[in-house]
Design a binder for these strands. Sequence first.
DNA 1: CGATGCATTGTTAGCGATAACAAGATCGGC
DNA 2: GCCGATCTTGTTATCGCTAACAATGCATCG
Lengths: 360, 360
Amino acid sequence: MRRAVTVLPGAGSRSGRESGYEMDVRSTRSPAMTDVAKLAGVSHQTVSRVLNDHPNVREQTRLRVRAAIAELGYRPNRAARALVTGRSQLIGIVAQNSTLYGPASLLAAFEQAAAEAGFAVSVGSVGRLDRESIAGAVERHLDQRVAGLVVIAPVASADDALEDMPAGVPLVTIDGDPARPHALVTVDQAAGARLATERLLRAGHRTVWHVSGPADWYDAAGRIEGWRASLEAAGAEVPPLVPGDWSAASGYDAGQMLARMPEVTAVFAANDHQALGLLRAFSERGRRVPDDVSVIGFDDVPEAAFLIPPLTTVRPAFDAVAHAGLDLLLGQITGENEGPERVVIAPTLVERASVANISA
Amino acid sequence: MRRAVTVLPGAGSRSGRESGYEMDVRSTRSPAMTDVAKLAGVSHQTVSRVLNDHPNVREQTRLRVRAAIAELGYRPNRAARALVTGRSQLIGIVAQNSTLYGPASLLAAFEQAAAEAGFAVSVGSVGRLDRESIAGAVERHLDQRVAGLVVIAPVASADDALEDMPAGVPLVTIDGDPARPHALVTVDQAAGARLATERLLRAGHRTVWHVSGPADWYDAAGRIEGWRASLEAAGAEVPPLVPGDWSAASGYDAGQMLARMPEVTAVFAANDHQALGLLRAFSERGRRVPDDVSVIGFDDVPEAAFLIPPLTTVRPAFDAVAHAGLDLLLGQITGENEGPERVVIAPTLVERASVANISA
DNA sequence: CGATGCATTGTTAGCGATAACAAGATCGGC
DNA sequence: GCCGATCTTGTTATCGCTAACAATGCATCG
């Protein structure tokens, strides 16, 4: 790119235009606001005003400044801005260091939504969801002077860690405890569970068994609650709960048990991985899905459509959660909505082939 | 912590010590370096020296400053430091917005390693790995004045986007093209493939079939290469390649085909999801694993141990990749190692129950 | 036609840290 | 006990930006 230029030694070449040729040479430093100002023939403050969309700038000036910005390839120094405003354009997100499908998709959706709003996302993943781990990750983010914080807090211990958060930091929790005093976005777990349970009852099943997630997770608790409520509302018997831990292994174990009971014709698994374990166990024990047993999962993981049979499941709309969470957070950051707010996202049922009518 | 202290109203309490009681009251502003300096009875520069471990500070002073830091709960303002040094303590990471197990674990491992080194990680996930998406994510990070950049670039188009990167920004690519001129960390895909292929040959199989990943991924190409090399080295016939796309669905399709060929007794799948699809297809068509067909996967996803049968697979040691990548990057940031370096991580074979000797 | 007001622009003063230099304290060697 | 070298500390300038205020121009109004 840079052409070879013969420069005569001695006077002349470096003198005179401080801004022109010189600028190109020491291209190591990226242009600052004053460079733009000089080129556009205005003060740096006017450049700042253009950048921040202040109303009182003449259209003509605005255009000239924008042209100068484009010509120099200027980009504002976020550190300087953060220093003077006390706020960065960074959003911190604390999530469990896991490859669970839910958290992973949530993180991705969040990053995307934040990028659209001009924010960057700093992740602080934690190994475990205990109080110390969460507190540590929060500290690290506060260190970075994040503009706001999103914490995925699916268990009580995570919420606990948030109690002694310094006030004034915008905070949104995802999947947290609705009883806590911060802004919150959750998936309506109970509604999702009702969707699944009612679908199975509608297919003619006398009752529906449930392989649940770990009881200390709010998600799991909500799904249990919705499942039980549906059964009771329909006057169906509530069978004993089969506890699991989100893993395929626990679903398989549950399936090994359920497959031995002829009366079990419909199972609602608290997530798709457990459902996968169920499917395998049933197939091993010769119970055909959906002919003998109907199964519904939760999450709609990418593989769900390719299982045998394709899995009917509840889809939690992670991107809606992410967008809602970000909106809440941005509202707090800009100071528009003060009080904590709650957003509840309604899941939908994705019908595939793992449910059959009992009459068939 | 803070003991209840009776403060007499009137004179005395507020006067004199500008730093003591007053500080606690206007706790809205977090303490700055000058506050610490005042409390410790030194200049702010000395505080800075203590913070940055400069050699020429008297031990006694150092202790006094540290005590003041602790008492005030002072934490340095990263923005101010970034402004004056021109470098943030932020590392950007560009990865595909996906829930593929590999990238997701890599991200998590990276964040952890970076946190240990005192860096925060800003993620820029992209929907697709094309040139524009990558370039956009890189831009956003440069905007944030990241200290360094890690790009997971498993396909050529991702590398392409890095060509017109401004020089001087520390950059490490993961899974990229070794022919490119930047620092690089890769898993030795070929070695992993050899591990798998040789294991199957050693079990007495005449040859090994391969269900590959998408051909434009370097990972997939490396695994194909290793597989082919092993067969040729052993003088075994090289069967036609069965192409896949990482998904369980493609593994299932491949399995439907392979199950019809009696001569197929050993299959190496390019990842565990494809292996999962294979297992299902084989089970559907009555070919028992491992009695009739042996299968090996790649990635060691959490479910691998719980499949039926538990899957023998190649484990790429994502945390080693992350650590190596971070070391390389930190080396560039501190200016220790200039030239591009390559680190190749050797994978290991995790033996489970999906491989059997052909003699049995 | 001078005063008043608003729109537009410029000037100055920080934000909180590090870097460069200056200055006082301390020390060894003669 | 004096001198220069070294250790330790303080002072000042600066990074690039925004906030607050000042200053200009121009239209509006009594």
